[in-house]
Design a binder for these strands. Sequence first.
DNA 1: ATGTCAACCTGAGTGC
DNA 2: TGCACTCAGGTTGACA
Length: 298
Amino acid sequence: MPELPEVETVRLGLLPALAGRRLVRLEARRPDLRFPLPERFAERLEGRTILSLERRAKYMIATFEGGDALVLHLGMTGRFTIETAVQRSAPGSYIYAAGGDPRHDHVVFHMAGDDSEGGVRVTYNDARRFGFMVLVAEADLDAHPLMAGLGPEPLGAAFDASHLARRAAGKKVNLKSLLMDQRIVAGLGNIYVSEALHRAHLAPERKASTLADKKDLPHERAERLVSAIRATLADAIAAGGSTLRDYRHADGSQGAFQESFFVYDREGEACRQPGCGGTIRRAVHTGRSTFYCPRCQR
DNA sequence: ATGTCAACCTGAGTGC
DNA sequence: TGCACTCAGGTTGACA
């Protein structure tokens, strides 16, 4: 499900419920998600305060007092919902439906509240269980296999046309595959790769090597692509991400960026590029759908 | 090194 | 209603 904009939206929603609060009780209702949950999961974290909740690529990282980092990945269907004590005592004020089928509520974080009675319950629900949680010593985080190979943040300063051209030079893969590779740039997925390529007017089948000139210097196409990726992600974050099928924010609300898709899931519809007049097509690369306009993407 | 495919798991949608 | 089939926002590991 979630690509960078959705993870960022979820993170912002969870921030007030988790950061600065003490984890009173941790309920793991099954032993595993995609991977086994951490050993002695509850025992190790209960009673400790979460100092911060950050994002790297599509991961959220909760840092606990004392130096442990809980790395969270939402997989395809992972989502969090938040309930406060007030909402619990006033049935109907909380939209539980947003959390999905309660059979898939796998992990519950019971957070201390601002008053003696208060408290916040943060529930992780994941029907397909492609998500996971890994506990790492904070000092080892950057070297952890999940983090070590990641490319730069697409919205950060390290991601620019020179970087992209250098990593693309000589590569035979197409642009779709290049951008899906988290080692090149971290956080894009199937939706935003299609959208960014369209915004850059670059065809998904174009060879990655054409982003670089000889001497591996960035071609103008690389500049265009970097700008398009940044703009697409920034717009998506501003819109609260995309809501497809059942993805929701932590507060149960929906994102709006799907209204702004230029190509994703629009096969057969008209290209929205002003003056283009093309028709959106769907192709399959490595088992995943790619949407593009054969007219204005070259 | 590159590229394809299957696997992980469940639910939603479609067509008969 | 039921059944069979396809597809889904991600990642990894096995192959050719």
